[in-house]
Lab assay of single mutants.
Amino acid sequence: EGLCAVCGDNAACQHYGVRTCEGCKGFFKRTVQKNAKYVCLANKNCPVDKRRRNRCQYCRFQKCLAVGMVKEVVRTD
């Protein structure tokens, strides 16, 4: 048992190249599959942790990419 590289929640295994929780795994997968574009309403440096991970989708997705999650391994079929 480890911690999610994105939000610090409990994470049992790796998803898309990085140890993440189920919440961040699902968020990343949905974002890539929908080709979603998010906008940060602040300064693009919002805190992303277990308690606040749902407040800014833009910053959460940027953190997913920054920690090494790989868009190309998300299935789109």
Rank of each mutant, 00 (worst) to 15 (best):
L3V: 09
L3F: 10
L3S: 07
C4S: 03
A5L: 15
C7Y: 02
D9W: 09
D9G: 13
D9A: 15
C13E: 12
C13P: 14
C13T: 12
C13W: 13
C13I: 04
C13Q: 15
C13G: 13
C13L: 13
C13D: 10
Q14H: 06
Q14G: 11
Q14W: 12
Q14F: 15
Q14L: 15
Q14N: 08
Q14P: 11
H15M: 13
H15I: 05
H15S: 09
H15T: 12
H15C: 08
H15R: 06
Y16G: 11
Y16V: 05
Y16L: 08
Y16P: 07
G17T: 08
G17I: 13
G17Q: 13
V18L: 06
V18E: 10
V18F: 07
V18A: 14
V18Q: 06
R19I: 10
R19T: 10
R19A: 12
T20G: 03
T20S: 14
T20A: 02
T20E: 02
C21Q: 12
C21G: 02
E22T: 04
E22F: 08
E22C: 07
E22R: 07
E22L: 09
E22P: 11
E22A: 09
G23I: 12
G23Q: 05
C24V: 00
K25L: 13
K25F: 10
G26T: 13
G26K: 03
G26E: 05
G26F: 13
G26Q: 06
G26P: 01
F27Y: 00
F27H: 01
F27S: 00
F27T: 00
F27M: 01
F28A: 08
F28D: 01
F28C: 02
F28T: 10
F28M: 06
K29W: 04
R30V: 05
R30K: 11
R30P: 00
R30H: 15
R30W: 06
R30N: 07
T31R: 07
V32F: 07
V32K: 02
V32L: 02
V32H: 05
V32T: 12
K34A: 01
K34D: 15
N35K: 12
N35C: 14
N35H: 07
N35D: 14
N35Y: 06
N35A: 12
A36D: 11
A36C: 11
A36V: 10
K37D: 09
K37F: 03
K37H: 07
Y38P: 01
Y38R: 01
V39Q: 04
V39E: 09
V39A: 07
C40Y: 15
A42I: 05
A42W: 03
N43V: 11
K44C: 02
K44E: 03
K44S: 01
K44F: 01
K44Q: 15
N45I: 09
C46M: 00
C46S: 01
C46G: 00
C46R: 00
C46V: 00
P47D: 14
P47M: 04
P47W: 05
V48G: 02
V48R: 02
V48F: 02
V48E: 04
V48S: 08
D49E: 12
D49G: 09
D49W: 05
D49I: 00
D49F: 05
K50A: 08
K50D: 05
K50G: 10
K50L: 06
K50V: 11
K50R: 05
K50I: 02
R51G: 11
R51V: 10
R52K: 12
R53C: 09
R53F: 08
R53A: 13
R53Y: 04
R53M: 04
R53P: 12
R53N: 13
N54E: 04
N54I: 14
N54Y: 15
N54G: 13
R55I: 01
R55K: 15
R55M: 08
C56A: 00
C56Q: 01
Q57S: 13
Q57A: 13
Q57E: 08
Q57W: 04
Q57C: 09
Q57L: 10
Q57R: 04
Y58G: 04
Y58C: 06
Y58P: 00
Y58L: 02
Y58H: 15
C59Y: 01
C59A: 02
C59L: 00
R60M: 13
R60C: 14
R60I: 03
R60E: 01
F61M: 13
F61D: 01
Q62M: 13
Q62S: 12
Q62G: 04
Q62D: 06
Q62Y: 01
K63Y: 05
K63E: 00
K63L: 03
K63R: 05
K63M: 10
C64G: 04
C64M: 10
L65K: 15
A66N: 14
A66I: 08
V67M: 10
V67E: 11
V67I: 13
V67W: 01
G68N: 07
G68I: 02
G68Q: 02
M69Y: 15
M69C: 04
M69T: 01
V70R: 11
V70T: 15
K71T: 05
K71G: 08
K71A: 12
K71C: 05
E72K: 14
E72N: 12
E72F: 04
E72Q: 14
V73E: 09
V73M: 10
V73H: 12
V73C: 07
V74A: 08
V74F: 06
V74C: 08
V74G: 11
R75E: 14
R75Y: 07
R75L: 12
R75I: 11
R75A: 11
T76I: 11
T76L: 04
T76R: 12
T76Q: 06
T76D: 14
T76S: 11
T76K: 10
D77S: 07
D77F: 04
D77G: 10
